[in-house]
Design a protein around this nucleic acid. Sequence first.
RNA 1: GGCGCCGUACCCAAGUGGUAAGGGAGCAGUCUGCAAAACUGCGAUGCGGCGGUUCGAACCCGCCCGGCGCCUCCA
Length: 488
Amino acid sequence: MLHLFNTLTGKREPFKSVEPRKVGMYVCGVTVYDYCHIGHARSALVFDVLRRYLEYSGYTVTFVKNFTDVDDKIIKRAQEEGVTCEAITKKYIEAYDEDMGKLGIRPATEQPKATEHIEEIIRLTETLIDKGLAYVVDGDVYFHVARYPAYGRLSKRRLEDLQAGARVEVDERKRHPMDFALWKRSKPGEPSWPSPWGPGRPGWHIECSAMSIKHLGETFDIHGGGMDLIFPHHENEIAQSCGATGKEFARFWVHNGFVQIHQEKMSKSLGNFFTIREIFAKSDWPESVTGEVLRYFLLSTHYRGPLDFSDRAMKEAKNALNGFYDLFERLKEPSDSGTGDDCLDAVIEQARVSFVKAMDDDLNTPMAMAALQGLRGEVNKLLEKGLSSRRRAQAREAFRTMGNVLGLFQSDVWQFGASPSISRTLDVEGEKTGLGMMADDEIKRLVAERQAARLQKDFKRADEIRRFLAARGIIIEDRPDGTSRWKR
RNA sequence: GGCGCCGUACCCAAGUGGUAAGGGAGCAGUCUGCAAAACUGCGAUGCGGCGGUUCGAACCCGCCCGGCGCCUCCA
């Protein structure tokens, strides 16, 4: 049974859905005013894996992930570029889908936008005003935190503590410094919708309450996002939602840790971030390889811990993945011998048990990956003894099934005969790694030439070619049947 | 000032009371025309430090050291 760490209770708890076999899950997406960085990728990936694992465990998952498409930063960006807000949000939503697609992150069941839920937002705001939990000032509407006693429950903070450390300028019109905007009066030139309080636009937090309630109901199973959203965003969502409905909101709150660069949080304000497309653009490897390597890397640490991104870490992930795909290549080779056949079922079953146990334990992906590594070793050993073609296919299928939960091992080809790519540097730590361009056709030609040389026992020439390619990161592997294949 | 996180081998990383998973890198061996891959073997008497609780602690408690996050937009 799946156990998840619930931020709300501060404990690891057995996961139980409201309705049997069904899960409603809401995850805060991104504000679409710029390209996504690896931190966004990690968050998206963690919840993609949670969703995949819930499905693997037999649940039907309704997964809602929003786009915040009305916001101060979007407005600012649009003004800077002299275009409309719509142009900005359209551009970055498309970029989001493209970037996440490269990482194998499946689109959510629903991907709602704030601007498409203005009606719901206004209704929710009205309810909060009616209940005395919100008040109107000059066309703005604020949530009145002092009227909501449970405020601080998620982030384990007391209002008094927050006040003491508040670094915000106090808005005199607010009744309490921590009161936050549900509705903002629009200034000229800003996006604006009619409302009972005059033309304006929604505040940030209210959209998630409105959209989650609309798509998942007033009480649903899982709400997720990055750790930095715990306060104030998720705290405010709870206050708004519970305040308005009088019911429990999300039951499980799941938060992922940060991606760091040299031990520091990766963030826009620090300027130490790498965008997803930047990583792909700089990578030496074919796109599918880069996507899978990045995925492998991001899952190699438990989702709640910090994760340090570096060029070196990417290479290590690539090497580790290489071992799997080397095995998959071997599994493709036909064989009649089956001395190890009888052991395969047990070996797979053992791996499956370890894998499920790891994932059940608060999505312990590093441990789950260790189970897959263990299976890799066992299957390699059986291959030494001899595995029939049928059993080889069975082994490959086991990797594909479990790998699918993590979004790994789905490619039929790894870098063997990979699609054309250009060798460039992944210059994350300032070290140069690229050795110039090496197109596939050129490699193939040299491999063929070497093949011919070997047939004539011209090993001098053959080794010359091997060394030439090796210097460019191409490794040739001679097969027992006399053929050769290569990989990057 | 308040809330919280992290510190395990060269690197990454599980383990959270029962005597240190796994991977990468490295070294040695088998195999190979040479390689690669695979297989075999080697690798922390110790888990930031010092005390304490316990039959027993990396795991619990206390203090300290080092690094970081949130409290303001932030995945």
